[in-house]
Design a protein around this nucleic acid. Structure first.
Lengths: 189, 189
DNA sequence: CCTCAAGCGGAGAGCCTCTCCGGTTAGGGT
DNA sequence: ACCCTAACCGGAGAGGCTCTCCGCTTGAGG
């Protein structure tokens, strides 16, 4: 890749990050290109689909989430580890203002780019490990599947995003999920 | 209201119902007007905002849902009554293809029309009665609030809508909500 | 039958996404 | 050091969207 191309790519990415943080899914790609100081054509050449742009933006976050998940596998309380991680997933999804939710929420992801699907899979695998541990521990019912659980968490993140005023909505809704009750018995203090 | 105006209003409503059923929230108001055989101006005169059009379309459904709720208050199992009703709410929200979810999901509803808010309130009141009964029965934990519960159901409806292929997703996700476990103990067969 | 307010509809402004292609330029080969 | 070309750029423009405005049409009361 030519140096100028790499440069433009970076600029677009920075502008996109800012635009998504400010306007959420409603951000205009037009304006992203403009505020990055490139033409629309350049934006679309680097990121042919919205999904491609997304993956480039959230790639690092996904990696961080997976690492956090691995760390949490060593946490003393399997149930609390799962809860903590799912909350992190939700917060991350919310930070992306529904954009991620809309694309990552549902496993089959109709028009998903391969890269987007890969992100999903990494999240899923990390979650599966945490969930399985919590289930072996008996703290979470065995009939719960990781895919549905993540879908539900994404839905919660999305809806919380619709009510930015209510900062505790996310936690209240997460607490409504089976196995996610906050102050569970296993603490026994 | 003049007879021709009433006529046009009806035609728009029919076209809108069809369009939302087919294309969901992505339906173009332009095309609705066109397929109703009226100009865009006519559509916007009758329904100044998307919310107004929505209320006109779902008004009947909301009434039906409330009536169903009242009937279910007489059901032998309070928990099952609540489950049944929430599922009906979710199915209705799904049928409207996310449109309702996007507007009705969150109680404060930022730009909500008064009429839309009234719909929400009627649903909320009906749900509150069913929930309270189930909680008195001890079948549903007492720390659950109806507003959050409905928000969560709307979120589930929305996300299910994103995966139209998976027809059981809605039920699986509902089953992940505390107090909504399907084959609960109270059946005792 | 006449009048005129109520109602109509489509042109158009101002957004958006996404494509296309002629002009520009980086940087490897000589 | 210079040239050549493939890679890259950007913006004009097509086509679609929402929503407004206003001159024309028409239902229906007097």
């Amino acid at each position: 890749m030519r140096a100028d191309a790499r440069d433009n790519r970076e600029r677009v990415l920075r502008a996109a990050r800012a635009a998504f943080a400010e306007h959420g899914a409603q951000a205009s790609l037009n304006k992203i290109a403009q505020s990055a100081g490139v033409g629309a054509g350049t934006l679309y050449r680097h990121f042919p689909t919205l999904g491609a742009l997304l993956v480039a933006i959230i790639g690092d976050d996904v990696a961080a989430l997976c690492e956090k998940g691995r760390d949490l596998l060593g946490h003393e309380s399997p149930a609390e580890a799962l809860r903590t991680w799912l909350r992190a997933v939700a917060v991350h999804a919310t930070a992306m203002r529904g954009l991620v939710a809309a694309r990552l929420a549902v496993p089959p992801a109709p028009h998903a780019d391969a890269a987007l699907a890969a992100c999903q899979e990494r999240i899923r695998a990390t979650g599966a490990a945490l969930l399985e541990r919590a289930q072996r521990d008996g703290a979470v019912p065995g009939d719960i599947g990781i895919a549905d659980l993540l879908t539900l968490v994404n839905a919660i993140a999305w809806v919380s995003e619709q009510a930015p005023d209510d900062e505790y909505l996310l936690d209240r809704l997460l607490a409504l999920v089976r196995g996610m009750e906050p102050s569970a018995h296993e603490e026994g203090t």
